[in-house]
Design a protein around this nucleic acid. Structure first.
Lengths: 359, 359
DNA sequence: ATGAAAGCGCTAACAG
DNA sequence: CTGTTAGCGCTTTCAT
């Protein structure tokens, strides 16, 4: 009933326009003719050269070369059912997290001669659903980064296409997972080693698997006692949210805070600086997610590095395993480790421990 | 002769694999049958509903809805010659500059119901050429960001597809330009107003149009006298290059430096901090390119903001103008302004002018 | 080892 | 307004 699913395209350019489809310059036919073979032979020259005699193969290749012929993917796709495209859905390109994944993903895809169809869902589940539907027929598989869809919807999707999830875990579905719980453990170990006892965590989006993992890490660590943790949030994973959160951190009298991601961490830093509070001497700040160039010049910030490019590659790998692999139904999970990076002056809490203060 | 152009795909997954193309679940035919009309009618229901009687239209839509039918783009593309895809080529997704453009681009493309095929050329002209060739038949047009190709090659491309350039200018080709020369002027005005007289510019890639524009701005400003400028570089637009450049700046005894982009600027900052040099009191640093979250927490850095998302949108707009527009041959240039952003404490040079120093 | 023929899903004349 | 016909470029039996 809703006009959402059907909706004949109405925007400018929607109805594929102009160029009437007569004949294209270098079709398989032209090659066939000039090489004095049938189109089937040309086809075979590309799909399985071993089927041809050396002579014909050479001749066909020569002609193809000369006419700079390349098989038409759309036509191929019609007959084979395979598109040679794979889709990547990210919630927000503005978040540096995702281009990094995209980079690794694209690199692996290119090596395998796949094209990448990109979609930015703007953190909007409705839009995400819509865009996925729109591209599902154009791709051989889809990778969803930190999808905002319900498990229900994802399982449904899984039935219609090959699916790989990044940072999301549902049954019988391949996924690349970043070991956020362990990252949290590392961060807490670090801070407690420095003597911090009152540590806050700025919680990210509710639907975020990473976030729930980090919370799990947090709970497990505080259960071991010896430190008091405090969850703040939920926040949007944005700079501005970090700024707002900074005040809460101060009010709560925490000596250290771990932010859902670098964007927020930088926001915290900025607000703290604005209030004349020294980092890390007054408050230590740790940020998840690795945006190296964003935080590299910010030595007062400790980060938990996430191997994003690797995750992208891994996702493509998992996808291909299902698409061309021997066991299309087999699903796998791959867990990638995080790593704590301490750059410059990380400080123990002011009232705190035995170590001498830097600076 | 080079194996580069031909090369039958050899990598895993290259030869479009498995699913043999029998019949697809909900083709136009099924809809036609169930709606008791011909396929043409169904086709028309989507391409130009006004051609049908209200009754048939309603019926067809109902059935289509029910079978969740969507026209197959590959098939459409075969007959119409239009793919509904547009390609975007960026030199490096790792550079936050490009995802920002991509974001705006994607948003506009989506509104017009186009899909985005993304390509990362890794700053490698050879790869760029190759990847463009590979996708040229799959798209209705291509947007090239800061292309590393020669003018020659670009003009050739222009003959084979619809082309829009971002930050590159060649004859008879639509382009979105960012007014870097003016940005440079703003930066220099700012610095000279503060009393700086010895200002350096960390030059970016040689092929970069932005870079040559900025150099032009620099030369024009210094020609007006009253300040001594110094060009350092060329550098790769990366954090590490900024670190290296910082030492040159110090050695040259400059009081202010303008970096080709934020990444480099952050590199400079980091190195300067490492050497115990205070920014902005000892040396003022200005960075081009807007990566808001990267520099927002770095108030000691002044930046010249580049309207990236806007540029992305504009590029898509220009592209559509040619693809579906009335004047396919007409090419346009669009110049977008930059804006200087002074965040926190920008200082006059130490030995310098009349203004009181902050802090 | 190669060719002939059929058809993938769709659109575009051309009738009516 | 709607149906019929003929492909678009390619792959795939099925012959040979």
């Amino acid at each position: 009933m809703s006009d959402e699913e059907f909706s004949p395209p109405n925007s400018p350019g929607a109805t594929l326009g102009k160029p009437v489809g007569k004949q294209s310059a270098s079709s398989i036919r032209n090659v066939a003719i000039r090489a004095k073979v049938s189109t089937s032979t040309v086809s075979r020259a590309f799909s399985d050269p071993s089927l041809l005699s050396h002579e014909t193969l050479a001749r066909v290749q020569a002609v193809a070369q000369e006419l700079s012929y390349r098989p038409n993917r759309a036509a191929q796709s019609l007959t084979t059912g395979m598109t040679g495209n794979i889709g990547l859905v990210v919630p927000d390109l503005g978040n540096p997290f995702f281009p990094a994944i995209l980079k690794g993903f694209h690199a692996r895809a290119r090596e395998a001669d796949y094209s990448v169809l990109l979609v930015d869902s703007d953190e909007n589940p409705r839009l995400e659903r819509q865009l996925i539907r729109a591209m599902i027929k154009q791709v051989d598989g889809i990778v969803l980064c930190s999808s905002r869809l319900t498990e229900q919807e994802l399982l449904e999707l899984r039935r219609e296409t090959t699916l790989v999830l990044i940072n999301r875990r549902i049954r019988d579905t391949s996924a690349v997972l970043l070991d956020s719980a362990d990252g949290m453990r590392q961060a807490l170990d670090h801070l407690t080693a420095l003597g911090h006892r009152k540590i806050g965590y700025l919680s990210g989006p509710a639907q975020s698997w990473s976030n729930s993992e980090r919370r799990r890490g947090l709970r497990e660590a505080s259960a071991k006692g010896n430190l008091e943790t405090r969850e703040l949030g939920l926040f949007q994973p944005r700079f501005e949210a970090g700024q707002a959160a900074a005040d809460l951190v101060v009010a709560a009298g925490l000596t250290a805070v771990i932010a859902f991601n670098d964007l927020m961490a930088l926001g915290v830093l900025s607000r703290l600086a604005g209030r004349g509070i020294n980092v890390p001497n007054d408050i230590s700040v740790v940020g998840f997610d690795d945006i190296p160039m964003a935080t590299m010049a910010t030595p007062q910030l400790t980060t938990v590095a996430v191997p994003l490019e690797l995750a992208g590659r891994a996702a493509m790998e998992l996808l291909m395993e299902q698409i061309v692999g021997s066991d299309p139904a087999g699903t796998h999970e791959q867990m990638l480790g995080l790593q704590l990076i301490v750059r410059g002056s990380t400080a123990p809490p002011r009232a705190g421990a035995t170590v001498g203060a830097p600076e």
